[in-house]
């Protein structure tokens, strides 16, 4: 996989465009963790892009780098045409307001000592104006919380689902255009997960938000996304319209993920107990080749670039074909 390549980027009215994003972390003794190695994606107005991958694939690092938390090692992140990398802190704060992030563990994301009303008001308050009571109440109602009940509560008095609603209300207080959601439902029970997914879907539509939805659960990502980008070890494998995920996925890694879904038949494509290679020293060429049933010498020598196979469908593999 690998891929680098930008054939999947579109022209036109893009809210967010990310090109050749690289995130590396120092790992001591001069070594580096290659968390994200040159990925590109873009987001149209009102679109939801799903980023799918297993732990260690770099999906969270990519999401944080887009938020400049911390800024990427290299690459470009443009929000409404403004390059965010390299902006001075004050200017960055001003532009980044249009992009908000929702995290996996909603309880840990909230300051345990503050009350719900203050938590929701915090965004505008740090920007110089505490919002009035009516605005906070409206924000809480919009995410399905009863303002009178939760107003004075602290995070530990709320369930995980309620905390995630507070996080969403908090993010929306700043009227963002883009939401970056990093595993927003994976710590929640299935019935609560459904409530939050429906809430995100409604909110997105109502406010015309664009979203980047990062998760490891195929069915969840497919449900919320218009397009899905599959990542493996810091690279992009495949970009596919989400309606086509189950039937038309071409990349061997995407297919492995599909075959691993518990409802898939037992047995099937078994890549043995092959382990994820270390991001300290990723394989040459295609990074998936060590686990790939299609791998040949070519895959070790040359990194595949994303190529178009159908409308909106791009694959980074030397051998995959429909």
């Amino acid at each position: 996989m690998a891929g680098t390549g930008t054939t999947h980027l579109r022209s036109g009215d893009r809210v967010l465009s990310v090109e050749d994003l690289v995130v590396e972390f120092p790992a001591g003794r001069g070594r580096r963790v290659h968390a994200v190695s040159g990925i590109s994606f873009d987001l149209l107005d009102g679109e939801t892009l799903g980023i799918l991958g297993e732990s260690g694939c770099g999906k969270s690092s990519a999401g944080r780098a887009v938020m400049q938390l911390p800024p990427p090692t290299a690459g470009s992140v443009r929000l409404h045409g403004t390059e965010l990398t390299g902006l001075a802190p004050a200017a960055l704060r001003e532009h980044r307001k249009d992009m908000q992030m929702i995290l996996q563990n909603p309880v840990a994301a909230l300051n345990p000592r503050r009350r719900v009303a203050d938590l929701v008001a915090e965004g505008p308050a740090v920007r110089g104006g505490r919002p009035d009571r009516a605005r906070i109440e409206a924000a809480l109602e919009a995410v399905g919380l009863d303002p009178a009940t939760v107003w004075d509560r602290r995070p530990h008095e709320l369930s995980g689902g309620q905390c995630q609603r507070v996080c969403i209300a908090r993010a929306l207080m700043l009227d963002p255009r883009v939401l970056i959601l990093d595993e927003p439902v994976s710590s929640l029970d299935v019935s609560v997960q459904a409530q939050i997914l429906n809430l995100l879907e409604d909110t997105g539509k109502r406010l015309g938000l664009s979203m980047v939805f990062i998760a490891h659960d195929l069915a969840v990502v497919k449900n919320v996304s218009d397009r899905i980008m599959v990542m493996y070890l810091g690279k992009v494998c495949e970009v596919i319209p989400s309606a086509a995920l189950a039937g038309s996925a071409l990349h061997p890694y995407t297919r492995l993920l599909l075959a691993s879904v518990p409802e898939a038949p037992q047995g099937g494509a078994e890549p043995g107990a092959a382990e994820l290679p270390s991001p300290l020293d990723p394989p040459s060429g295609c990074r998936f080749r060590t686990r790939c049933p299609l791998a040949t010498d070519l895959c070790a020598k040359e990194e595949p670039k994303l190529r178009r196979t159908a409308d909106g469908h791009h694959v980074a593999c030397h051998h995959a074909s429909r």
Partner: peptide
């Protein structure tokens, strides 16, 4: 509970049932 789980076979943006 069964109706609240998203399924791979469903089209994107299907509304999930909640409890």
């Amino acid at each position: 509970l069964l109706a609240s789980v998203p399924r791979l076979g469903d089209p994107p943006h299907s509304v999930l049932r909640t409890i």
